[in-house]
Write a protein that binds this DNA or RNA. Sequence first.
DNA 1: GGTTTGACCATAA
DNA 2: CTTATGGCCAAAC
Length: 114
Amino acid sequence: MERDDPDRVVSAGFHERVAAVVRTVPAGRVTTYGDVATVLGSPQVARHVGWALAAMDRPDVPWHRVINAQGRISARGDTGRVEVQHARLVAEGIRFDASGRVDLRVFRHRFEVD
DNA sequence: GGTTTGACCATAA
DNA sequence: CTTATGGCCAAAC
């Protein structure tokens, strides 16, 4: 990471691009890591999307609207964040089924596809 | 500077 | 449904 200033969030170009994309997701909608990665250029960088989001604690980035391709909230070990993310999505109108999954057919945001 | 890891994904069994 | 595997690439160690 940037060993210069821990306070100065991030300056990595990748993270910034991820932030820019995630910011375009409107409330009441969700997107997936793969989708964000695809918009960035390659669907294979999905892992980095999640990785980048982990470094973004800024309020201007709706990171909670980013879930995995299975319509589920991902949290490798840190379950605390999952509850917050789930609560935020529900508050925005996202509906989860009994299995805790989101219907991507309905809530998945399309990135300006013509 | 090589190895491990990771908020993933698709596919196979 | 779950588990395993390969892939891709940047950060962390």
